[in-house]
Amino acid sequence: MKIHIPTPLRSYTGGKETVEVGGATVAATLDQLATSYPELRNHLFTAEGKLRSFVNVYLNDDDVRYLPNKEETVAAENDELTIIPSIAGGCCCNL
């Protein structure tokens, strides 16, 4: 399956914007990605192995966190995963 890598993580995929790895589910695919490109693991997952909170993963047009089976969603060969860190901020700390 194709996985689209965001700009800041491409230094860990040899500069590739898109990589291809296999996996039966989204979780298995992400794990295979981190196995193929070991330096990515720490950027994607916490020490406990959970996806970091600011890392969004889309299966085609769907946010994986909102799919019924979440990361255990079955992934097909022609599906595409997109990894997209969040963008947020604001001018001052107090609401």
Binding site: P8, S86, I87, G89, G90, C91, C93
Partner: peptide
């Protein structure tokens, strides 16, 4: 701001 920094990941 500190919020900008905390939320910056790129």
């Amino acid at each position: 701001s500190q919020t900008d920094f905390a939320e910056a990941h790129w």
